[in-house]
Amino acid sequence: MIWRKKNKYTDSISGVLHIVNVFLGYVPTFLDDYVVSSFDSSVLDKAQLLDITRDVTPVPCHSHNDYWRRVPLYDALRWGCTGVEADVWLFDEELYVGHSTNALTQDGTFTSMYVDPLVKMLDHKNELGEFATSSSVKNGIFDTEPAQTLVLLVDFKNNGHDIFPVVSQQLNALREKGYLTYFNGNTTIEGAITVVATGNAPFDLITANSTYRDIFFDAPLDKLDEGSVTTRGGQGTVGTTPTSHFDSTNSYYASVNFGHSIGTLWFGRITEAQRLKIRAQIQSAKERGLKSRYWSAPKFPIGLRNRVWKMLVEEGVGYLNGDDLQGMTRLDWGVKRHWGLIG
């Protein structure tokens, strides 16, 4: 009886110590500030929106669920993000943008929210002035680095095989003006816009044309070295076979859910085993000419998020993926500016 009482007492003390330990592991992370990254587009006229990147330094970060922002596309561009994301649903031969069907509106189409604004901006960037000469090389979105491509990640939400031809058709406005990155049968020529398909995007349709393609795949980062890909459905698997090979001729991003692949960061700490796994995945993507990207990494507490970002950059990740655009592009979490140029 006495032993049981002591055992209960010991268990209670151990439980309290465990909670205290967890709390202390997170204390520094709660002390960080958080800044909402949005702006009021109503104070800008159309000409100012076209030049919103004039003095912006591009940063290899991806605007996750970009369409949720107060000003989709432009918000990401004014912070310097070189990747934006549009979730698309196909209904009645039209592509609507939104995270779920409940969020779709008649006005929120892929063309109106992304294709048309990008065409207008790029047309503006490539206007020939009084002293300019014609050139086959197209300027990109960012005036400070006109050769920098902008990744347009298109997340196929319902049937990917039905969505693919509609996406391809709606990209004609960019394709016809030579703004798209494309594979010519031998090499990949980078353009102002690189279209990457994810979600239920079908790898078999993306690779069907062996001599030309301008829609690239979001490869499964955690499967690159396994030699096979399951066909369970979802990002990086639709339309693949056990022998599918991913490289820069058919893919651009190589992505994975951080938590599913790397695991939980207990007590807010990254273990050596987790770091080594991340290092191996990033290196595998680099060897194939792909940009590694982790989605669904910890977002809160802010200090933990920043430590994860810092670690990913140190390991050479291709793109940071996040929701706090100012937080990603501010780069005041221990990494010097222009890190993407040395990764």
Rank of each mutant, 00 (worst) to 15 (best):
G83W: 03
L265V: 01
S37L: 01
L49D: 09
D332Q: 09
L104K: 06
L118R: 09
D247N: 14
G340F: 02
H260Q: 15
V35F: 12
H99L: 11
A132L: 02
N21R: 10
Y67N: 05
D45N: 11
T188G: 06
V313Q: 14
W333E: 04
T57G: 01
V84C: 04
W3D: 14
T144S: 15
D155T: 04
Q106E: 15
P165Y: 03
T188I: 08
T57A: 02
R232W: 11
N250M: 01
T230H: 12
K125S: 07
L150R: 00
T53M: 07
A285M: 02
D332V: 02
H338N: 09
G327Q: 15
L171Q: 00
D222C: 06
L73P: 14
V313L: 15
Q235H: 13
I189H: 13
P165W: 07
R213V: 09
S41P: 05
L325Q: 10
H338C: 03
K5S: 10
D214I: 00
P28G: 02
G83S: 15
V22I: 15
S134K: 13
V43G: 01
H260T: 15
L320M: 13
S112P: 02
A297D: 06
F258D: 04
R288Q: 11
T109L: 09
V317R: 04
G185E: 07
N172V: 00
N159L: 03
N184T: 06
K177L: 00
M113I: 13
A273M: 05
F156L: 14
L174S: 02
G15R: 10
V84Y: 04
T271S: 14
N102C: 02
S251Q: 06
F183D: 07
T241S: 15
S37I: 05
E130M: 04
E287Y: 01
Y67M: 08
V119R: 08
